[in-house]
C-alpha cells in the first residue's frame, strides 16, 4: 500500500509518516510541494493521497482538481489535512472531489481513523473513524 503525503512542512510529513507506520503496511512517499506531487503522481500508483491546502506554489485545491482530472490516478482516495482556518476552502476542496477533511491539529487516532475510512482494506488499530 502506497500513500503520497504532500505538505510543505517536513515536521508535519514526519509526523504523518510516524502515525501511518502504526496504521498498516503503508509505504509513505513524501512530497514537499504540489509540484513534487505532480511529478510523482504519473509515475507511481498510489492507494491514497494526503495533502495540505495552504502550500506555496500549487495549492491543495489545484492539486485535488488536477488529480481528479487525470486519467491514471483520477480515482485515488484523497484526504485533506489542513488547519481549519477557512470554512470556504474546506467546502471547496470537498466539492472539487476530495474524499475527507481532517483538521489540524489532530490526534494520531484521528488520522488512522480517517485513513481506515478511506482505504477499508487497511485495518487501523484503535480507529475512531472520524469521517
Amino acid at each position: 500500500m502506497k500513500v503520497l503525503v504532500v505538505d510543505d512542512s517536513r515536521a508535519m510529513r514526519a509526523y504523518v509518516r510516524g502515525v501511518l507506520k502504526d496504521a498498516g503496511p503503508w509505504t509513505v512517499v513524501e512530497a514537499s510541494s504540489g509540484f513534487e506531487a505532480l511529478r510523482l503522481l504519473p509515475r507511481e500508483a498510489f492507494d491514497l493521497v494526503i495533502t495540505d491546502i495552504n502550500m506555496p506554489d500549487i495549492n491543495g485545491l489545484e492539486l485535488v482538481r488536477f488529480i481528479r482530472r487525470s486519467e491514471r490516478q483520477g480515482r485515488v482516495p484523497l484526504l485533506i489535512v489542513s488547519t481549519l482556518s477557512s470554512e470556504r476552502d474546506r467546502a471547496r476542496v470537498l466539492e472539487l472531489g476530495a474524499d475527507a477533511f481532517l483538521a489540524k491539529p489532530f490526534e494520531p487516532e484521528d488520522l488512522r481513523g480517517a485513513v481506515a475510512g478511506l482505504v477499508p482494506s487497511v485495518s487501523a488499530k484503535d480507529a475512531r473513524g472520524d469521517e
Partner: peptide, 20 residues
C-alpha cells in the same frame, strides 16, 4: 504571515501550547 501560520499549525500539532 505564512511563517507564523505554519508555526501555529506545527506547534498546535506538536502540542506546544504557548507557541501556538
Amino acid at each position: 504571515f505564512r511563517g507564523v501560520h505554519t508555526l501555529k499549525g506545527l506547534s498546535g500539532m506538536f502540542g506546544v501550547e504557548p507557541l501556538s
